[in-house]
Design a protein around this nucleic acid. Sequence first.
DNA 1: AATGAATGAGAATTCATTCAT
DNA 2: GATGAATGAATTCTCATTCAT
Lengths: 197, 197, 197, 197
Amino acid sequence: MPRPDVSEERTQQIIAAAISAFVKLGIANTRMEDIAQEAGLSKGTIYLYFKSREELIFAILDSFIARELAYATELLTTDISVVEKINKLIDIVVADMAQIKPLTPLYLDFIALAAREESVREILQKPFDEFMEVFCALIEQGVASGEFRNLNVKEVALAMGTLIDGSILIWVYDPEFIDLERQVKASLQLLLDGITV
Amino acid sequence: MPRPDVSEERTQQIIAAAISAFVKLGIANTRMEDIAQEAGLSKGTIYLYFKSREELIFAILDSFIARELAYATELLTTDISVVEKINKLIDIVVADMAQIKPLTPLYLDFIALAAREESVREILQKPFDEFMEVFCALIEQGVASGEFRNLNVKEVALAMGTLIDGSILIWVYDPEFIDLERQVKASLQLLLDGITV
Amino acid sequence: MPRPDVSEERTQQIIAAAISAFVKLGIANTRMEDIAQEAGLSKGTIYLYFKSREELIFAILDSFIARELAYATELLTTDISVVEKINKLIDIVVADMAQIKPLTPLYLDFIALAAREESVREILQKPFDEFMEVFCALIEQGVASGEFRNLNVKEVALAMGTLIDGSILIWVYDPEFIDLERQVKASLQLLLDGITV
Amino acid sequence: MPRPDVSEERTQQIIAAAISAFVKLGIANTRMEDIAQEAGLSKGTIYLYFKSREELIFAILDSFIARELAYATELLTTDISVVEKINKLIDIVVADMAQIKPLTPLYLDFIALAAREESVREILQKPFDEFMEVFCALIEQGVASGEFRNLNVKEVALAMGTLIDGSILIWVYDPEFIDLERQVKASLQLLLDGITV
DNA sequence: AATGAATGAGAATTCATTCAT
DNA sequence: GATGAATGAATTCTCATTCAT
């Protein structure tokens, strides 16, 4: 009886453990030993699945951006008003955000890394670019349909992106004081009010 | 003859060198040696002015938030329309941002740190709170004066804070593509449009 | 039906693979994994046939000295002149050397080991001693028969041994420049000239 | 009062300690910690003077070949018979050998290394080549002066080189049984007899 | 018999910190 | 005040060996 191939399972197990450790301790302060313990494995085992600490970090980064944008693209062709579309998208984004929230410290580590390392920046850029494309398309639709004022589309899309991603920063400053999801929703609504005819 | 006390000068020299090194290399990757070299001093000397690496990091953090908000508070009592006040404030913020821009990588290191460490978070919270107070006050004035719609003041202020601080994130994703200062200005203007009667 | 005992075959297979790996990488740099791969087996399997890495190394050492000296001993009683005998022996030695040549790096590893470890030295000593005995006997025959000058037999035998084994060193220094077999033959001939009446 | 620069002293101290440790334990089995202890320093200190273990090994290799051949070259132009010259050279070589003898295990490590690594081989080649040049020149002088038979000069020089370097191998096999210096002298004398008219 | 997965002791290297001068 | 030399704890990564299947 051939043993089942555990490699995919282990890989995921290690990534999950690493994320958990990185969130708690920060990338810089997390030792391979910490990850091993979190995974319930030995140090050596991690190296059976990842060539180096760095490779593991990048594997996590990759798993981060694997997040689906499919529904968003799909939304573009739905037959409802643009404002409704955007409201739906906001709901999706906010729901997503609620899920990611616990990973915030790690997410910020990556952004800090991206500020210095081209390779990391490129990886983070991709989902951001995709996101921007969808938003730009939506806003253009709104302008075309007359729902929105005549706007600099890119500016508006960037403003929306800023409100979404930036809210994480604000939330970090004062997590007690701020209800992240509610605030994102409210901010985007304000912006929407500003651009709606 | 007592030698002149160079201690304040040296302290600043070291802080400046450390900031420079941290920006370039990241806090995690900067060794005391790097800072010493940047300062043109020896490693040992740093320890004459700072008890430890950590103390130096906190000293930098302190120096970061020493930024003055005086003009903002002063603005509150000036005798111009609220929209004008806010526009002025935006100009100040944007000008300030242009100055801080080169420090972005370090700033993000600190935020990532703040996401995990209460002590760091508390420090960063202070200027944010002050900023929020001014903005809330301004918006209240606007609502009172009838310039703005009847709004949830806190939500609006947070949205503005988000647009300002969050734009840094967006800019990190794609520094080529985004003109940071222009984008901040544009975003805030959009928001302002949304809340103005 | 009992399966055929493959253990002797596997043992040889592993030894051959280990020799090959050791030659290529050096004893110090060869991992059990390298040997396993070379043998087309798994690491675990090697331990079914050898208790430890060290035991495998000693098995190789043993296989090295298993080289037969039968012909040489036989030569002693042949009915030809001593000079002819020695020439024949030289031919045999040189032919042997041509075969061993590819193993040189490993052979040198063992000698370096022998310089430090009595246990290894004792193993390498055996074939050397046998060789010396044959040579001493031959030279004595030559002296007795009047073909050679009256010599310190041991000195001559050692000189011959030195020329044979030492040529490997010289060859390592400059393998392009030196034709190992030809050089061994020529050196021994020169020595033979020096001792012949 | 400026502190004296200890860097040259430390460098030599570490090289000496490393040689000592390598001789005892073998390059492969010597840990940086062993070297540090032998030098009476801490592990970290070694890295202040050598970038890596490998750099230290190469530094030792370099120090090995720094051995002077000046006297040999000088000998070429002395006004004595070639046989006398060679005898003098033999004395020098044998005296040198007596000094190096304790380093034999390490020397053999290097040769084993040279058998696999071009970079090491190149370094060891240099003194060998110089040595060969002197010997070739001497033998040519002998042929020209009629002291030696008409010979293949290179072959003879290589035979001499082989006897000198190779005797180390023989000696390793059986250090009790063999008087290294005496044997080298005797072997070379035999060879000399064989080439003298 | 064979193996692939797991282990953990051990090695090289780094770097914050100390301290004699 | 200043420094360069020294330290050693901590960290990443390797690899001989074990063992359940």
